[in-house]
Design a protein around this nucleic acid. Structure first.
Lengths: 346, 346
DNA sequence: CTGAAAGCGCTAACAG
DNA sequence: CTGTTAGCGCTTTCAG
């Protein structure tokens, strides 16, 4: 079996089998100073054409890849951004994470991902670990509650964007929507369509709980009886949607309007309703939350609260990118709102 | 409105309103050298108890958070790892990404996330950007095809783990399973249960295509007629599952066994079958792929190919963490296999 | 347009 | 147990 010697051999310059070339090696090979190499790479316009050629050739020859760690240390621009998500298992934040990665990558930034879990417990350590990287910004999913975390974040001087929620006391920038308003709207929506016996099927995380509370309050205000509430452990699953519906129906078969704190729960409700021969929307109006990709194609198509996760990600990224370009840029507060996508299920 | 002055003010040491303290400031405040501070933080056992106290106090007082960028530059240990995923929208890799983040974080590493899209096009630039961070390792989803990417990766000397697939020519370590074997097993499974008119409903990404090809070949070998194939654009959705089933049935209502390249497609098939009054598994046996969280609770519960995404993530992380501790550690090849989870739908 | 000098903030390696 | 010295690889700054 013959083998072209150049194929996957280490480039000639490098003696150490692995470890990347350094700028010095490139400079030596091109017969210029490291400074010129640096310029050729970051501001090619400021370098003579011929010199540029030589440098490019040397870069190629050595397979040089700049070391951003070193560059970042000196220039104090890490081009790194950190994001914290409660969970990567549930698909709720997939759109946002995707938009963050895409927007940041397009602008030459890289994303470090951290997971906080649904409790605030280890968030403090996580934030420390992230600050240690001196990122150009930190994107948080949810608003910060722990006081020490907030202080740490403020003290670090790193731009912060809290997302997926609104608060009167943001740390810095804010891109979200009102969970309370969304829940109230759903309640009104069901009420206006003649539904009188309402219930909520919700996860037990903080934001879902707030939606539940707002929904219940709105129902009471509208003169309806207090909605039944069934809580399931976060993250929500199809299975807990099915058992949730059973348990809710067991409390009284007159239930005619149901708000699920997640489309996954709603999918479970549809599945179980099918088994129980409970007509949706005939007997029971169903509203989900999240407008996950499958919602539109369900049978019946799911009426749900749409949150534009992609937009949240994009706006959050913009906050940080813009601020990196102009330190004086002000903190932003963006309410991306929500919409009730009316489909067959309600 | 009164305000406790100490509340959110900048610590006394720091003049610049933001920007974190440096180790020098801590050292000065504690009355020791920077080296002692460094040791107090990373190897507290080697520092006198009293000194330790002083340092800890100074760290606290200045809200000092070590700068890992600087530390990493000197020690050549970035404690950063990069991962590349084709897509963050589809939930297929959620488990793996979650396991990677969790395992790495537990070991004191941080994860940089990159998205390649389902084409190999921009993968090369992405890999460059990642190598530029000098991560302790790179985890790839899928095996590398582009030759220049492979060479670049090898040349960098950074440990690489390819995942979710097997290949005879890995770059370095490998954690995956055989897509061909999985497809063949499903074919055998359906055949053994008396199904004779088979079809495949599959996404058009490279790995799904290979499963499709293997499934078709296995059917032919078993003496069955060539399975019908319906391809849908990746990423797969519930909607394309529904229309896929219609189109497949239109080609002949005698179809009695269907393999979907994703559970999401299978969910669409179940939904549409419900509408068409097509009994599953009575008339049509259905097998999905992925064992997404909802599969077990569907009606009928979905028979599907389970890939242990969590294990893939954990093993991949281990490959890199172990190698970081012992440079001589050998490249690993782990076949995590797959299993057909037999439930009601087939 | 190019180069030399001077670090960014931290830690290996060696002395005390 | 602690301190000193010397950089990691790059870029800012200032002279040519």
């Amino acid at each position: 079996m013959s083998r072209k010697p150049s194929d996957r051999d280490a480039p000639a310059q490098r003696v150490r089998g692995n470890a990347s070339a350094t700028m010095r090696e490139v400079a030596a090979l091109a017969g210029v100073s490291t400074m010129t190499v640096s310029r050729a790479l970051s501001t090619p316009g400021k370098v003579d054409k011929e010199t540029l050629e030589k440098v490019r050739w040397a870069v190629d020859k050595t397979s040089y890849v700049p070391n951003m760690v070193a560059g970042g240390l000196k220039s104090r621009k890490s081009r790194l951004v950190a994001a914290v998500v409660p969970s990567l298992i549930s698909p709720v934040f997939n759109e946002t994470v995707q938009a963050l990665t895409a927007t940041f990558n397009a602008a030459g930034y890289q994303l470090i991902l951290g997971q906080s879990g649904y409790e605030d417990s280890c968030e403090s350590e996580l934030v420390d670990a992230l600050i240690a990287r001196r990122p150009a910004g930190i994107v948080l999913t949810g608003v910060v509650h722990a006081d020490d975390v907030g202080r740490k974040l403020i003290g670090s001087g790193i731009p912060v964007v809290e997302t997926w929620d609104l608060t009167a006391t943001p740390i810095d920038s804010l891109v979200g929507f009102s969970h309370e308003d969304a829940a109230r709207s759903v309640c009104r929506f069901l009420h206006q369509r003649g539904r009188r016996t309402l219930a909520v099927l919700a996860g037990d995380d903080a934001r879902a709980k707030r939606r539940t509370a707002a929904f219940v309050a709105a129902a009471l205000e509208a003169g309806l009886q207090a909605p039944r509430v069934h809580e399931v452990p976060a993250p929500a699953t199809l299975g807990s949607g099915r058992s949730g519906l059973r348990s809710l129906m067991a409390q009284g078969a007159d239930l005619d309007g149901l708000f699920c704190s997640s489309d996954l729960l709603a999918l479970g409700v549809i599945t179980e309703a099918n088994v129980m021969h409970l007509a949706i929307p005939g007997r029971l109006s169903l509203v989900g939350f999240g407008d996950l990709s499958f919602a539109r194609d369900l049978e019946p198509a799911l009426t749900t609260v749409r949150i534009d996760g992609t937009r949240i990600g994009q706006e959050a990224a913009r906050c940080i990118i813009d601020r990196a370009g102009n330190e004086a840029a002000a903190a932003r507060r963006i309410d991306v709102g929500f919409s009730i996508v009316e489909r067959a299920s309600a």
